[in-house]
Design a protein around this nucleic acid. Structure first.
Lengths: 113, 113
DNA sequence: ACTGTCCCATAGATAAACTATGGGAACACG
DNA sequence: CGTGTTCCCATAGTTTATCTATGGGACAGT
């Protein structure tokens, strides 16, 4: 309560998978690192909750767009590293172009005087 | 099956209210006309299903962002005309700026090499 | 009359985010 | 040393907003 700022920065439905795949495009990362990466790259606007992140990673694993293996984080902690597969890279391309297609369409509607 | 094109052009969740409010920004329209307007303005990319449109209009009515009254369409059919309220206009401004804020954030993530 | 188009609306299914919860391992601090 | 904090993984259940499916009524053209 009090002066607490209740502003939420939710991830728009449909964009999380794309953001994760994009984060992995330059190399393997663990889940926590993916969330931090998205947070920083978005200049603190986007915050991926763990309850969104890990189910999303499970989906991506099941669909074969990422692979995973256990390893050690920089801080000597056990962590699961996710990596883009070849299929995942193609999927990323599809999601990026579809996203831009739809965003351009929305922009045309909301920009019209 | 066969050569059927299964491409769907769904409205991204969270954007429909904004698109409707924006469509009404220049004057009252009936539901069917709103759907057509969005379809045309988006150059046929976005298609608002009736099962999405009318529940959305109900939400907007309940929240006081639009008002409605029955009248006649151009084709002599009974139609319900929706109009932006003052509160709706403010809401549209909020939704537009929040949309752009989040879209810029997403763009920063997916544009990073 | 029948068919298509215009126009409204609701019910139920679905998807993907969220909150809440749980656990374990390393590190910092008193 | 033990206690808390940060790092890291994961699932269950709730919520929200779209979709599909369905229903009806009224006008227009053949």
């Amino acid at each position: 309560m009090g002066t607490r700022d209740t502003r939420r920065t939710e991830i728009p439905p449909g964009t999380l998978d794309m953001l994760i795949l994009k984060s992995l495009a330059r190399g393997a990362m663990h889940g926590y690192g993916i969330a931090e990466h998205i947070h920083h790259m978005s200049e603190d606007v986007l915050e991926v909750e763990e309850g969104s992140l890990y189910p999303a990673l499970q989906r991506l694993l099941i669909q074969g767009w990422v692979s995973a293996e256990w390893g050690q984080s920089e801080n000597n902690r056990r962590a699961r590293f996710y990596r883009l597969t070849a299929a995942g890279r193609k999927q990323l391309e599809r999601e990026l172009s579809e996203f831009e297609r739809v965003m351009r369409a929305i922009t045309r509607v909301i920009r019209t005087a």
